[in-house]
Computed example of a mutant assay.
Amino acid sequence: MSTRRAFMSGTFFGIGVGPGDPELLTLKAMRLIQQADVLAYLVGESGQSQAKQIAVLALEGRQSSHSDIVIPMPMSTRREAANNAYDEGAKAISEALEKGLNVAFLCEGDPLFFGSFTYLMERLEGKCPIQVVPGISSIHAAAAELQHPLTVLKESFCVVSGRHTEQQLVEALHLHDSVVIMKAGRARPTIMKALALTERIEDAKYVEYVGRDNQLVENDVRRLQNEYGPYFSLFIVSRKERGTR
């Protein structure tokens, strides 16, 4: 008896599609996307899904008679709006799973690393079989693009978010040899200030929209405008002198 029939429901897959380059999709992710009965993904206010666009190569070989589950995600700082969207998405996914359909949720980057899949998994955990397929994160894609090691030898390594306070950013930059600051976006001026306060401007590199057609790489962050940047952007900060720690 198959897993699907034994559980009397379909399986919910969290599929990491990577940061932007369609060729970074794993073989397992491609196979499961092509085999899934139903695809689910977030869409922005434009009605476009970046995760679906990244998975374009897998979609070329896909055949299904079932409609996709499209989850509109409002661009709002209010967490209530996002929670409502995830509630509605989880409900639609549950209905498909109860029919015995396998649902694959397409998630940019890695599903469990700042991934939107996390919030759907929380709502469906214990109610259905769940499988997670890891994806290449924007951190690793950015390091590869920069040809810059994230950490070596005994260096300490830390990942923080642009949503942290200036003081938290300063503490991380003081305490750790290598720091990645994710989701820079609206926090870019604060991040630049924290880099200046800790005298780590020269240690920093910046990447936005890694792996996409509009990718931007800046090895000298002093050239950046002191203004908001895009949501999909990050700083990689590491010591200039390496290999002795």
Rank of each mutant, 00 (worst) to 15 (best):
G162Y: 00
Y206S: 01
M73P: 03
K183V: 10
G135W: 08
S137P: 06
A172D: 10
P111H: 04
P72C: 00
S137G: 05
A172C: 14
A82G: 14
E166T: 15
I15M: 04
A172I: 12
T244S: 08
R223W: 07
S138F: 08
L120M: 01
A90V: 01
A58S: 06
Q167T: 15
V207Y: 09
R212I: 05
G211I: 07
L25A: 14
T165L: 01
S67C: 04
R62D: 05
V180W: 08
K205V: 02
V43E: 08
Q63I: 13
Q48D: 06
G109K: 04
F117I: 15
E218L: 07
A204K: 02
M121G: 01
E208S: 15
H164K: 14
L169M: 15
S94F: 02
D37K: 07
R79P: 04
D37S: 14
A187C: 06
V221Q: 03
D110K: 11
N102S: 13
I33P: 07
G61R: 09
R212N: 02
S46Q: 12
K205M: 04
Y206E: 03
L234Q: 07
M73V: 08
M121K: 03
Y231Q: 12
A144R: 09
M192A: 06
P72Y: 00
E80Q: 14
R62W: 05
R223G: 09
R212F: 05
Y86C: 00
R123K: 13
V221A: 07
R242P: 01
E45C: 13
L57V: 15
E202M: 10
E241P: 01
H140W: 06
Q48M: 03
A143Y: 04
C128N: 09
A51I: 01
L224S: 12
E45Y: 00
Y41C: 05
A141M: 05
L57A: 14
P230F: 08
S65E: 09
P22S: 03
R212W: 07
E218Y: 08
Y231W: 11
R5S: 15
Q63K: 06
G18P: 00
L153A: 15
V237D: 06
L42E: 15
Y206M: 02
S64Q: 10
V159H: 06
A29L: 04
D87F: 01
H174Q: 11
R79H: 07
A144Q: 05
M192S: 02
P111F: 10
I181H: 08
R62A: 00
S138K: 10
E171V: 05
P134R: 05
T151S: 03
P72N: 04
A143F: 00
F114H: 06
R223P: 04
Q147G: 11
L173A: 10
L39W: 09
K52V: 09
